[in-house]
Amino acid sequence: MTHQFTLTIQSGKNRLGETEGFDRIEIRPGDTLSIVGPTGSGKSALINDIETLAQGDTVTGRRILIDGEEPPEAFIREPAFKPIALITQNTRCLADLSVEAFLLMHIRARKPGREDLVDETIELANTFTGEEISPKTRMSGLSGGQTRSLMIADALVIGDTPILLLDEIENAGIFKDRVIRSLQGGDKAVILVTHDPYLALTAGRRIVMRHGGVSSVIEPMGDEQHLIEDLAGIEARLHRIRELLRDGAAFSSGSLSSDSLSSDSLSSDSLSSGSSGVSMAAVERGVSYK
């Protein structure tokens, strides 16, 4: 899609009936925003308001404008014109179709004539998930992580919209770093609900939710850079340990001491060299069972 949009969120009310802690939030191409807050604080409701381009007709009373105006009805009701793709928390697909048939039907709704996108979508999904998805797999038979991976790839390839909404992509055990890399580049505006500190902090702005409404919008202006770098190290280390675990590794006792999480030993280089807290020598492959 070549046309770019400015999206505006006009404030509504929280569950206590109080006006939200902002007047309007403008979102332009290339912007990234994270949405944080405790469970039940209204994070998913906010992205659902954006996805349905609410016009004061949801519980929050928010209005979502495109280029400063109420969007045309086709933007809301016709998938082919909709400038927004949403990746929900769903890790189950109930559609009684093969992956291929499902994607073909979605292409018919979003991008008629582009049947060639089926393979591209499955290929991209397979870079996010551990176990491969094949075109003949039933949608309802996909695992949680496979479903999520396919939905993300579907949003990127078939949706290919200027505005992308993601609801907790860190769940379901997919390779979130690869997902994030796929999101970057291009002029997409990305809005993500997350409990992941690294994802939350690296976004350009952070929307904080409370009692069903937005309580504040934080613009870090670079102040949090040190913390982000620190977290990047921890992330890299966690990623490495997670992948080893998933691969069947076992660790000797005490090898995961707390100072092994200090920032100086946390670049991915130091992880792979074995100089960090986890002694790679202690890793045993293939746990033995009797």
């Binding site: 996805e51 793709a85 949403l86 929900t88 769903n90 559609a95 979605h106 939905m151 949003a155 949706g159």
Partner: peptide, 24 residues
């Protein structure tokens, strides 16, 4: 709210196949 956006759009397409002009 219980299905993904893609699934919602595929379901819509399925209705459209049965009744092309219906208001959904």
């Amino acid at each position: 709210d219980l299905v993904s956006q893609a699934e919602k759009e595929v379901f819509r397409e399925s209705i459209r196949k049965v009744v092309p002009g219906i208001d959904i």
